[in-house]
Design a protein around this nucleic acid. Structure first.
Lengths: 352, 352
DNA sequence: CGCTTGATAGATAACGTTATCTTCACTCAA
DNA sequence: TTGAGTGAAGATAACGTTATCTATCAAGCG
């Protein structure tokens, strides 16, 4: 039972080699299995490893070899169901590809987003996946492009998940979903039902998610030949509380609105609550729809008609694409489809 | 503009040193700032770093120095709101202490939990935080204890968050919350309201979370001198669908139950839905309470009376305690309090 | 029977940092 | 002046792996 004195701390490959009576490289060979080792020798080494309770030092391995086997995941806030499901997709796919998953949050702060990407560069992550809507500011785009190139030069990859590409010439992988199409389909659904005065509620202009959803909203109106009253496009955060506040303000001012298109399901939850508090019935007095199809949507009363976003698949694809990209394309892009899910929150308008 | 030829990949500290015309250690000193460097030299180095767009190699640094600056976070599933909020707490605290956060999921599989902890050992994470109820199986406890000791020997720390300690002699930090007390208070609340036939619904026996909550349920009954009908303690997963199924089965068999204590808010959501489907009103025909106080609880109809768990604080404490533990205590323990939040889902029983 | 060949295993050199030990030029007191 | 003290930098040696090159031994072949 010759063993390294306890309390010494970490056991290294050297200790294993000594105990097994072989050289250090031989142990390394047993570990990686990429080189022939005599069965007897292998056994001795394995026994020594077990005896000493040895685990490799991932840092030393990363430094010596080339591959790092880590995927970084950058997100506003893990708490939102929207992100949580993408996170699950990322984590699952990463795990199934034998990768570890580094989690960072930015709290919606573009400054912090840049700082975090920098940090990931230090970690030599194989891919850095940035999730959620992007800010349209010129300076932010420039800085992200800069990091995309820096990562690319270091053999890594910037992945944009749920936000538009930075440009054809910037080396990134983009995994987006069809915000514009989903908003278009949903708006068409409302217009088909006879609604003509629809409020689009929530979202900050300049955030890609908002802009794309509003674009779909406008296009559907144009196709139906319905003029949009710009004052019905209300700005706000993606929060339930904002849904409540905006709904109150809207109904205090106008009587003619028959439907509310909430920019997200969370906002829609607030809208429904505000309507209930005001004594209005959904969908009889007011139709309400959302966007995202988070689990909450089907739990609301009434169950919310909304646009389904394939969150989990989004996360999986982000990892999958960034890890095995075959051709040396500068800029890979995938757009996943969205579709409307009809539940119980839409009816024909009463007052035309 | 003498610079390393592009396309070479990673720039190292050597390149910076060469460009700045100083030695490698000098650059390192500028980087860490723990040693005096002449202002002029510092400036030259900083300029070179910017010029070459240099970032340190975290792996090399981890290998050379001792500190690793990573916290690992092991959880069943990021998707559940319960875990998501703990995750947020962990991530926030880790970030504010300058640590990175490694995320792993186990999908409730004890095997995978062990594998993941092993993996974290390779990463030399400063702390490995395992979140959520634990399985009581002897073999699992033994293996976790083993890893706790292994981590401890390597200067790291196993943190149990929301699950009981592994024993006095096992080197761990435990950050728990008062399951038993919360369940006790809530049960007392129901008993005080006059309920005498209460079903405890959901949870798997053997999972610490379940066992602790049931214990509180039983203690309150004992204190009120009310006999518990064991057949009213129903087993099931922590899922909404199980809440629906169990409620249907329960009400098909018995007429005398006046209140349901759902083991979690998710189950309670299912209970409420099933009751509504059966044409029963809450709380007039049946009182319902939950446990966890996830955001969903206040959105349900009626708003759910439940036990508040300080999720985010739990995550923060886990990181804080594991990072600065002063005395060399083998086994630190903290238990955070829980309290009931009264909303609209409890009334006095109609039928006594 | 000597020489090539294949299968193993050891020796040595990276990998990119930080820690530690020296060295070197100065300044200041004796 | 000269020796001690000080501030700044270089030299060198880790850190724990894997990669690469070299050495050994046995078998196979001409």
């Amino acid at each position: 039972m010759a063993r390294k004195p306890d309390g010494e701390g970490r056991t290294t490959i050297k200790d294993v080699a000594a105990l097994a009576g072989v050289s250090v490289p031989t142990v390394s060979r047993v570990l990686s299995g990429n080189y022939p080792v005599a069965p007897g020798t292998r056994l001795k080494v394995l026994r020594a490893m077990r005896e000493l309770d040895y685990v490799v030092n991932a840092h030393a391995r990363a430094l010596a070899g080339a591959t790092t086997k880590t995927v970084a995941f950058v997100v506003d806030d893990v708490t939102g169901p929207f992100y949580a499901y993408i996170a699950r997709g990322v984590e699952q796919q990463a795990a199934s590809e034998g990768r570890l998953c580094l989690l960072c949050t930015t709290h919606g702060d573009p400054e912090r987003e840049v700082a975090v990407v920098e940090l990931m560069r230090e970690q030599h992550a194989e891919a850095v996946i940035v999730v959620g809507g992007a800010h349209a500011e010129e300076s932010h785009i420039a800085r992200m492009s800069y990091f995309a190139r820096a990562l690319d030069k270091a053999g890594s990859r910037l992945v944009l998940c749920g936000r538009p590409s930075l440009g054809e010439d910037v080396p990134t992988t983009t995994v987006h979903y069809d915000n514009e199409g989903g908003a278009h389909a949903m708006t068409a659904h409302l217009l088909s039902a006879g609604h003509r005065t629809i409020s689009f509620m929530g979202g900050k202009p300049g955030l890609s998610t908002t802009d794309e959803r509003v674009a779909g909203f406008l296009r559907a109106h144009a196709e139906f030949g319905v003029e949009v009253d710009e004052s019905l496009i209300l700005e706000g955060e993606f929060l339930k509380s904002h849904g409540i506040k905006l709904t109150r303000e809207l109904l205090a001012e106008r009587e003619d609105v028959t439907a509310i298109f909430a920019a997200t399901d969370m906002i829609a939850a607030g809208v429904l609550k505000a309507l209930r508090d005001l004594g209005l019935r959904t969908p009889e007095d007011m139709s309400v729809v959302g966007f995202d199809d988070i689990p909450l949507a089907s739990d609301l009363t009434p169950a919310l008609t909304t646009v389904h976003v394939p969150h989990e698949q989004l996360g999986r694809e982000a990892v999958r694409l960034s890890l095995h990209r075959g051709e040396p394309a500068v800029n890979d892009q995938v757009v996943l489809g969205t579709h409307i899910v009809v539940r119980d929150s839409v009816a024909r308008p009463r007052r035309l």
